Amino acid sequence: MRIYTRSGDKGTTSLIYGQRVPKNHLRVEAYGTCDEANSMIGLALSFVEKEVDWDEKQTFIEMMHRVQTVLFHVGSELATPEDKEVVWKLKQVHIDELEEQIDNWQTHLPELRNFILPSGSSASAALHSARTIVRRAERMIVGLKEELPDTLVFSYLNRLSDFLFVAARFINLKSNGEERTLNINH
């Protein structure tokens, strides 16, 4: 199979079911931003493999792989025209899993008393970057709210950014990375 099709050479791409839209269409921007977040999570995991050594490392990696897979579900919903059926629909269990993991990691972390700066280990910094990319995707999809009335995409992305924030803190803890707090005296 060839990787190139030449069908996008004039600045358009296909949504699911074949509808052609400009490559700067809000749906394309939104699922492209989710893809960017997915790639940044992959980069973070490459650092986790090298930087972190603890018994539950593989469990952490598997959880992140599930998140990467669910981001494809998000992309599927965003790439499906509003009058068509979504093939890979998000489910409440996807959000519940994030919340459960956030609560679990929080029990191991020091209480948050200040804003923290994205810092510490490379894995933590990459997870913070993924978090900010997810926040950008959230801001983009607000413009699609009327086209996505019965979706969990909004809730999932909101929770995912919280999840990535706590994951970044947790990885810093496990990799002995320094968590820097905001110094308001500057």
Rank of each mutant, 00 (worst) to 15 (best):
A79M: 08
A30P: 12
E56F: 14
C34K: 09
Q92P: 13
H108L: 08
P81V: 09
N114F: 09
T59S: 08
H94C: 06
L15A: 08
R6H: 14
P110N: 05
I116T: 05
F115R: 05
K84T: 08
T69W: 08
L78Q: 03
S119Y: 02
R2T: 13
L45N: 09
V74D: 00
Y31I: 15
H25D: 12
P22H: 10
D53E: 13
A30K: 03
E85H: 10
Q68V: 00
T59D: 14
D9Q: 07
T69I: 09
S7V: 15
S39R: 00
N104W: 08
T12V: 13
P110G: 02
F72A: 07
G75Q: 01
L78N: 08
I16Y: 04
K89A: 10
N114M: 06
V93R: 12
N114Y: 11
E49W: 06
I61H: 04
L78T: 06
Q106T: 04
H25T: 04
D9P: 11
H94S: 08
I102A: 07
F115A: 15
E111P: 09
K57E: 00
K89L: 14
V28E: 03
V87C: 09
S46W: 06
V93H: 05
I16F: 08
T80D: 09
S46Y: 10
S14I: 14
V93F: 03
G8P: 12
L45P: 02
A44T: 01
E99S: 07
K91P: 03
E100T: 05
M63I: 01
A79R: 02
F72T: 04
M63F: 12
W88C: 10
I102M: 09
Q58D: 13
R6V: 15
K84Q: 13
K23H: 12
